[in-house]
Structure formats: C-alpha cells, structure tokens
Design a protein around this nucleic acid. Structure first.
Lengths: 328, 328
DNA sequence: GTGAAAGCGCTAACAT
DNA sequence: ATGTTAGCGCTTTCAC
C-alpha cells in the first residue's frame, strides 16, 4: 500500500490499464459509463495503491471545493461550538468539510474570512452572528451562497436564515416572569446590533406592555463590554448602586446570567430573584440549576444548514427556517 | 471593482500589460525581480479588479495549501475551543487558515480527517488529543507534519509536542490536597488512554505515596461514560453508596468537578470537601468559585503551534515544548 | 464503454 | 527585469 509517495489518478489508471478519464468516472460513480469488469479493476487499483483523490485538483477544475466555512462571532461562547459541532456532523456524512473561524464580531475579520473562503472556493459560508461589512454586502449582491444563523442578513430579508422566532421567545420569558409575581424586572443584553438580541428584547418589552406591567418597573440595560460574564456582573452592580435590586431578571445569554448571579450571590440576595437566561446550554443543570432559560434546538441546526447547502442556498420564502424554542 | 465575475491572474496581467508570471512575482514579493513602475502597474490592476489569488490554484501547484487542520477530540470541551481560538489567532496573522474538526475521540473519525486533510494538501495537522489509529501511524511513518497537543504521539516520543509537565502538575495537586489536611482522597478521571490524564494521575498517586499518605485512603476511580459531567456525578454517587465520602477530590477535568460538585450539593456535603479540577477555565471564577484548578496557559499554545508549523514541524529534542502550569 | 485532450489558476524553471 | 512554457491533479467535453 502506498509504496512511495501519494498515488495520483494517473498511477491508478496505469495500474488498472485504463485511461484517467475512466478512473475519474468510476470514482465519481457516473452511471452507465463503465463495464463491471472495468469498475472492478479500477477499484482494485485504488485499493492496492491506497489512493485518495486530491481534493485540490478537483476543486480547481470544478471551481468549488468541499469546504464549508462557518464564521462564528465568538468561539468562547458554548452556543457557537454547539452549533459548530452539529454542523460538523451533518457535513461529514455528506463528504463536506467544516472550516471554523472566529470573527470576534469584527467586520474587518469577517471580511478577511469572506475573502479567504472565496479564495478557497468554499462551497458555502455560514454566518453565526453576521455583522455588517463591505465584503458581506458584496457577497450578497453577487448572489454567493451564504447562510445566516441566529442573526438575520443585514442586507435583505430573503436570505437563507436558520433560527427561532426571537420575538415570541422574548414574549414567552415575559409571561413567565409575570407569572412569578415579580415587581421589579431588569433586562440585561449585549450588543443590539444583533437582530436576534434586538428581537428578543423587543418581544419581551412589548409583551410586558401588553400585559400592563408598569414601564417604570422594567429596566433595560447593558454595559460596554463584549464579555458577557463581566457584563452581567457589572449590570447588577449598577442596579445595586441605584438601589434597584430586581426581583426578576431576563439575561439575553446564559453567560450574562452567570455574571449577574455571581454579583447577586456576593450581595447576599441570591435566592430573592428569579433569573432567566437564553440558549439553554446542557451545562446549565450542572453548574447553574437556579437558571431558567430558553432552550434552542441548536443540535438540529446542522442538518438544516447542510440541507440548505445541498440545495444551493436558495433565497426567498422557503429560505427562512424557524425552529421551535422552549422555556425550561 | 470586480465588474462581472471573479478576476483571475490572467485578467490582471492583461490590464497591467504584463505577463502573468510578472503578476505572480509581484504578488509574492519576489525580491529584485520587478521594476518599481511594473510593481505599481500590477498593484493598480489588482486594486481596480478587486483581485485575490485563488488559493486552490496555488495549492495545486505548490502541493500544499494554507490550511492547517486542528483535530479536536471533543469540541464541547471549553478547553479545546480555548486552544482552537488561540491557534486561529496565531495562524491568521501568518496568512494560514484554521480547519477545526471534531474526532469525538474516535479512531475511525480521526482517520477520516487525516485522510481528508492530506487530500486537502493541508500544511500541517494538529492533534488535540490524539488516539491510536492506522492513518496516524502511517502519517508518522511517512514523516508528515503532525503536531501533538496535550497528549503525546502514540507512535514515537520525538514527535512535536506542546503541553505541560503532567506528572509534576499531578504532584502539585497532591501536595495541595495534603496541605488541606484531608483524610479521605478520591481521584476521578476519564479515559486513561490519554497520556495526559494517565501522567497526571500517576504524578498525583506517586506523590501521595512519597509523602506517606495511607494508600487505603486514596480511591482512584472512573465511570464508563465519555460525558465528564455525568462521570463526576456518578463517581460521587458510588462513593456515597460505599459510605466513603471524600474530604478532598482531584478531578481530572473541570467538567468532572462540576458533576461531582452537583452530587455533593445534593447530598448536603458541599462545603465539607475541597475540590481540585484541571484546566482552569476562565469561566470557573464565575460559575464555580469553589473550584481550585490547575491552570494551563492554553492561550499561549497557538503561537507555539504556529511557530512549529513555520519551522516545518521538526521532530527531535527541540520538538518537545513544555509550558508552565499553575495551581490556582 | 472508453480514450484523447483541453484547461481550471497558479508558480517556477528556463530563456532572453 | 520580463516573458514563455510546462505542468500540479483533476473533470469534462468530444470523438470513436
């Protein structure tokens, strides 16, 4: 097996006593294009040489590789890796390969990767948290295959999207918080440039209003940091200084909730507040059983994404795939 | 800019009024091989056309791409993503691209990815938790560039390795646990096929023995599951059933510690035990302030890995890079 | 059913 | 300093 160097299609052809075209056809399973005996001879040669097609040659010829890029806004966020793991699995069974990148929510880096993936002839690019950027605008204009997860495309509403009904999820949390009888509510969120976060907050606030909750008793706040743990901690800190300790909390990510909880524990008012997070990480029951959260079926996103890629990332009505969330 | 379709080097050459070879040279910064005016003309054409070299063409010609594969044994483990993020950053500044894969600690999947990355002409493959497998053995035999992180190469001891002194780390924990005055110690670990885990346990046990700790008072155990949270929970469960509640705990991952802690809390003996984990995730102070842990400078691994790749992944003495750990 | 040949975009000898 | 040319490994017409 693989005596000297890596075998090429040429060596396989020689060994099987056929042309390289025939080898290619057999390997790609082109129907009705090879006699049974030829197929057998080719397969034997492939086996004996331990041959594997060099993807790069194929990619150059077909002008597209089997690489699928996933640009995540933050790899430190377990949500991102949960989705990534799900995508990886769905791609692997289809012979596609995941390229995982971290954009740090930075338009510059997002652009860099969009260019790089185009240079790699990537089959599709999946944006886990898109930000506005020049190259993204251009990619959309050129009709390149891009899929948006959680956050909608900032350029046009008919682009392929996979996520949940964020407004409805926000409203669900609002109703649950009202049910606790809380009198002082705080909403703590990160960047609102994320359509997902903005929609969740809007859904929450709108629902409270509809239910006639006193607007003055609901504070919506954030802190100037991208670290959600820190953000939650500081937000509670500020509320405490304002003498406005909340009795119920809606944190727009579980990480924010962790940070908030820490500060509440330090202040000794841990048990006094009911805390709602977002994402429903499997880790929660273990490390934060006090946390209620909106569970999003991220483990199903991979299949949906892979299927969308198989269909060529079509835009339009059918391109919007909404999954069911669940308050747990 | 980029009027119709993606520009090729040919179009740039035409526009600049030079040959494609000259364009290639200018773009690759081949010294003393182009007049200033030519360089300017080429660069202008590149800018005007919004041209970017197609990596695949280059890769085919050079028989190596700019892809660097990182095969992680488990993407759900924050340690893996921490390393991945660090690698990503170090590669990006060097114009290399990270391909992140999840082998699920499965030799079959590891083999699949090793083959795939060889087909992609990957520049190097980084194994975050290598397992024995046929293709890995072959890769080592063929002298292909592979770097081992945390777990040593199962085939030969002079392969590039990046990690900590695991035996010493285990001993450090042993001394810290003795210092607490604990009388009943338990060690809870996952798969010992991992050289990292095995070394840590061995270092711990050996140190206890040297310090004349009664062997009967130290239980070393595991549970048959790959989920470390579950593992920790069940291990404590078993100890409680055996009426052997530990007063100090060495968990071979922070996740195991989380699981163990949950069970201890349920049993109401939370505060009675001091718990040591491993990895020192930045999340710990927030979600598990009760946890002491061995902090590993994973954020520095990326640079070391990238440098090793730049040097062509040489094997031998200098290939072993040991970082300093810290008990926190 | 099979082969010959063109060519994907790029780099690297080799000329000049 | 620049151009010509020959491929890298593969797929895909187009003949036969």
């Amino acid at each position: 097996m693989g005596d000297g160097r890596q075998a090429s299609i040429k060596r396989v052809a020689e060994r099987a006593g056929v042309s390289i075209a025939t080898v290619s056809r057999v390997l790609n399973g082109v129907a009705n294009k090879a006699s049974a005996s030829t197929v057998a001879r080719v397969n034997r040669a492939v086996r004996e040489l331990g041959y594997r097609p060099v993807s790069v040659g194929r990619a150059l010829r077909q002008k597209r590789s089997r690489l699928v890029a996933v640009l995540a806004s933050n790899l430190a966020n377990p949500v991102m890796t949960a989705i990534a793991a799900s995508v990886e699995k769905a791609l692997r069974v289809r012979g596609l390969v995941l390229v995982l990148c971290d954009t740090h929510d930075d338009p510059k880096i997002q652009d860099e990767y969009l260019l790089e993936m185009s240079a790699q002839l990537a089959r599709a690019t999946v944006l886990l948290g898109a930000v506005k950027s020049a190259q993204l605008r251009r990619a959309v204009a050129d009709g390149r295959p891009v899929i948006y997860v959680n956050r909608r495309c900032p350029y046009g509403s008919d682009q392929p999207f996979i996520g949940i009904d964020n407004r409805a999820a926000g409203a669900d949390v609002a109703r649950a918080i009202l049910a606790t009888g809380a009198k002082n509510v705080a909403v703590m969120h990160g960047s609102l440039t994320s359509s997902a976060t903005a929609d969740r907050v809007a859904g929450f606030v709108d629902c409270l209003r509809e239910m006639a909750f006193p607007p003055g008793r609901c504070r919506v706040l954030t802190e100037p940091t991208t670290d959600h743990l820190e953000l939650g901690y500081r937000a509670i800190d500020r509320l405490l200084r304002d003498d406005a300790a909340p009795t119920a909390l809606f944190c727009l990510s579980d990480l924010i909730a962790f940070g908030a909880h820490r500060r509440l524990v330090e202040a000794g008012i841990d048990a006094g507040a009911s805390i709602f997070g977002f994402d429903g990480s499997p880790l929660n029951p273990w490390i934060a059983p006090w946390l209620r959260s909106v569970r999003v079926p991220y483990e199903d996103f991979g299949e949906a994404i892979a299927r969308t890629i198989e269909e060529g990332c079509p835009s339009g009505k059918r391109a919007i795939q909404i999954f069911a969330h669940q308050l747990i």
